[in-house]
Amino acid sequence: MEAGIPLNWVLALSAVLFSLGALGVLIKRNIIVMFMSIELMLNAANIALVAFSKAHNNLDGQVIVFFTMTLAAAEVAIGLAIIVALFRLRRTVDADKATLLRW
């Protein structure tokens, strides 16, 4: 990577974003926020992939990113549908209230 942002910086950004996303999933109770945090994690991974792709002069990483984005779109469609259905049923988006499937 000549004359640009060094690889490590980008990776650090990716790691920070990923950690924030994971933290969000773990500590937030609002499903929509958790959902957004998951998107954050996905995109953190994307950044890392693109960075490696550029560093190694190999396009595979960027191709995977496209797949990830497609996947994310599909995931959003299904996830939001589930959230809407849950909201209609329970009148809430609190993840800790949906604990029916347990021992």
Binding site: A22, V25, L26, D96, A98, T99, L100, L101, W103
Partner: peptide, 17 residues
Amino acid sequence: VRRTQTGFVRNYALYFV
């Protein structure tokens, strides 16, 4: 071991992480 199945999504996420 069924006690581990709390039903809290965030618990499972914690196991993941």
